[in-house]
């Protein structure tokens, strides 16, 4: 009598159900409030850019997977999520072909040349953003006037700060409008409503898809560095609150710096990574020719991730000695 075969395998024999698809789906859902806010301000163009970005990203992912002879895995939604994050960094008026070019760069240089998902040293979204901004500064770096027919451009809060200083900032950009989003203030699609970004970010943190440590480090590093200068000279320098709410601070802190692959894995590493990102953001805003530094900062600081990953916690019980000399 032969027994029906049972599976014999090493534990654990249950799984949480956590998956790449699940993580990416959470990221997409977390960005929906920001998309909705941008839709209210910029209209249907928001949806156009988001749809083109997501669709073309999935398309390029499939093409490149075929080309690199990898198994087709567009179902993990990583390309779709990446496309949506890239759309967040672009103005609503950007031509369709720029978006399609961007997603190609994102998936080619940010994923497939390195060996696929998880092997890339840099966030593909940021590679694409940097490439587009350097190639088409006018199309990617100029922001439309929300209320007009979008043929005109307008200064974003951070550019206004760069051009005219901090003196009249509070009147031009009331903090409340910066926080909630308004048709008075322009920026990229993802920079409209900080409330929407905060909701999405908290959703990711509470669902344990991202660690709270990186955003907390990022925002405190940014606010702390801004506060130093503001306290010295509030006439010349903008307040920490302005810096938190203007531009891509929250987008960078919750959606870019937390990129799973290119951010550190240890708590100490995450905290320092976040802090350095925040400080770097401020450094770029203060002293470079670019008005916004959050995205560049994350891109550059992720080069240090291998270093941050060396900041490991002490192994359980290591007061008694090192496990490396185990007599086994």
């Amino acid at each position: 009598m032969k027994e029906p075969g049972f599976v014999v395998a090493v534990g654990p024999h249950i799984h949480s159900g956590n998956s790449v698809r699940d993580m990416m789906l959470h990221q997409i859902i977390a960005l929906l409030p920001a998309v909705a806010a941008a839709f209210l301000v910029f209209g249907a163009d928001t949806l156009r850019v988001a749809a083109i970005a997501m669709g073309s990203a999935v398309f390029w992912d499939a093409v490149l997977q075929k080309l690199f002879k990898r198994s087709l895995s567009i179902g993990d939604l990583s390309a779709a999520a990446g496309g949506l994050v890239l759309a967040m960094l672009l103005p609503a008026t950007v031509p369709w072909w720029v978006v399609v070019l961007g997603t190609l760069v994102m998936l080619l240089l940010g994923k497939h040349v390195y060996g696929g998902l998880g092997c890339n040293p840099f966030n593909g979204v940021l590679i694409a953003y940097v490439a587009l901004l350097l190639s088409y500064p006018g199309l990617v770096g100029d922001y439309p006037v929300p209320t007009s027919d979008m043929m005109m451009t307008q200064n974003s809060p951070l550019l206004e700060l760069k051009d005219k200083g901090a003196e009249f900032l509070d009147e031009t950009f009331p903090l409340q409008d910066l926080f909630l989003g308004s048709t008075l203030i322009t920026g990229t699609i993802g920079e409209v409503s900080k409330l929407a970004l905060l909701l999405g970010g908290l959703f990711l943190v509470l669902r344990r898809k991202i660690s709270w440590i990186i955003p907390a480090g990022f925002l405190s590093g940014l606010a702390g560095f801004a506060a130093v200068f503001w306290l010295i000279d509030p006439e010349t320098y903008a307040s920490p609150l302005f810096h938190l709410l203007a531009g891509g601070s929250l987008l960078g802190a919750f959606f870019l710096a937390t990129d799973w692959t290119t951010s550190p894995v240890t708590k100490t590493g995450m905290a320092l990574f976040g802090l350095v990102c925040g400080v770097m953001t401020m450094a770029i805003r203060l002293w470079s020719q670019w008005p916004e530094g959050a995205y560049f900062a994350v891109f550059m600081v992720s080069m240090l991730t291998p270093f941050f990953d060396k900041l490991r916690p002490k192994v359980f019980g290591s007061k008694f000695g090192s496990h490396r000399q185990v007599q086994f």
Binding site: M23, G118, S211, T261, P264, V265, P313, F316
Partner: peptide, 19 residues
């Protein structure tokens, strides 16, 4: 392929780097 999300590091009770 590991995507370096860090969940294993976060959850390890012995504070190791399982991945």
């Amino acid at each position: 392929v590991c995507i370096k999300c860090g969940r294993c590091v976060e959850v390890c009770p012995m504070r190791l780097m399982p991945f």
